[in-house]
């Protein structure tokens, strides 16, 4: 960890002016990702702007019947908030599938979106990594890539975004509200994280001098037919090999609308509108679910250590959709997969 200077931001405007003034500054919220990476010398901000004092920790009803979650709401408060557990249980479930209670007590909603990849090479400064040091090469492509991407990767980077929460947010089509020196804007989930392309050092479309203020959940909540299914190498406290957020609206056995998002497979939560469209009007059942899986996994290409994730993802998608259709979402504490 390098020597850095620490300031507290008093309000959003102050935070923005601080970050604009200091090129190598970073915001810090829960710190669970940033401090980790600073200790590894992967992140080297020379100033930390503490935003935990900002008034961004409320969950509010929106006029359109959704919820607006302040960027500083801790992951655990969000997961257990009655409004979330009742109306957006998919989000609650995804959050509880991630990290540990201690980490969820610390981690903020905004920080979760911005957590960086867990790629082994990104973390190890003795190895090459284009995301950490552009131009140095990608250590993972020919190395250990079990935890890397099968979709949307590029020649320069095959990292995945490790968040569980974001997979649910993506399925729920949440909107990210940000403020910057030029004012406020809203970014759709689908546009928030980006694919690596040839600039893998850039994870998201948030500008360096912008701050996340809130996440907005639209009113469509999928509270009845949903499931978050996470497949990993041990039964808790591990990042996803593959995770699936599935949400359906079913009427008389037929699917009215569908959402499907994958985690652990790409540089961003992965969705395929055509897979979701394809489900609409179909009878909820294995046949339709297999087709949706095939569509969303179209073009998936794996590497030496992660090819199995393509077939694993296919099966997990089908199962998560089955769980959603049956109204038997995956429990995050009972380890039997229903």
């Amino acid at each position: 960890m390098i020597d850095f200077d620490y300031v507290r931001a008093s309000d959003v405007g102050d935070a923005l002016s601080q970050i604009t003034k200091h090129q190598a500054a970073k915001f810090i919220a829960g710190g669970t990702n940033l401090i980790d990476l600073m200790k590894e010398n992967v992140e080297q901000p020379t100033r930390l702007i503490d935003i935990t004092g900002l008034p961004l920790n409320e969950i509010q009803e929106t006029q359109t019947g959704g919820l607006k979650i302040g960027a500083l709401v801790p992951n655990s408060d969000l997961a257990y908030d009655q409004r979330i557990t009742r109306r957006y249980p998919l989000l609650a479930s995804a959050i509880l599938a991630g990290a540990s209670p201690q980490l969820r007590n610390m981690a903020s909603t905004g920080g979760n979106l911005l957590q960086r990849t867990r790629c082994l090479y990104f973390y190890d400064t003795a190895t090459p990594c284009n995301k950490r040091r552009p131009g140095s090469g990608c250590g993972a492509a020919e190395g250990f890539n079990r935890m890397n991407a099968i979709l949307g990767w590029s020649e320069s980077c095959i990292a995945v975004h490790p968040s569980d929460m974001c997979v649910a947010l993506s399925a729920l089509e949440a909107v990210v509200h940000v403020a910057g020196p030029k004012g406020e804007r809203a970014i759709k989930s689908a546009d928030f994280h980006r694919l690596p392309g040839d600039t893998p050092e850039i994870d998201t479309n948030l500008a360096r001098d912008e701050i996340i203020t809130a996440i907005e959940l639209p009113s469509e909540d999928f509270s009845r037919n949903y499931s978050y299914l996470k497949i990993r190498d041990r039964l808790s406290y591990a990042f996803a090999l593959v995770s699936v957020a599935a949400a359906l609206k079913i009427e008389a056995g037929a699917i009215k609308s569908a959402r499907l998002a994958l985690g652990g497979v790409a540089h961003k939560p992965w969705r395929a509108p055509d897979a979701e469209q394809g489900l609409v009007g179909e009878q909820a059942g294995r046949k339709a679910f297999c087709e949706a899986a095939d569509i969303i996994l179209q073009g998936a290409v794996g590497f030496a250590h992660n090819r199995f994730k393509i077939e694993l993802a296919r099966r997990a998608i089908v199962r998560a959709l089955e769980q959603a259709a049956a109204g038997t979402p995956q429990s995050q504490s009972v380890k039997v997969i229903v």
Partner: peptide, 10 residues
């Protein structure tokens, strides 16, 4: 995080 040893849930 990546050298897995059993946790409580296992």
């Amino acid at each position: 995080a990546e050298y897995h040893v059993p946790v409580h849930a296992d």
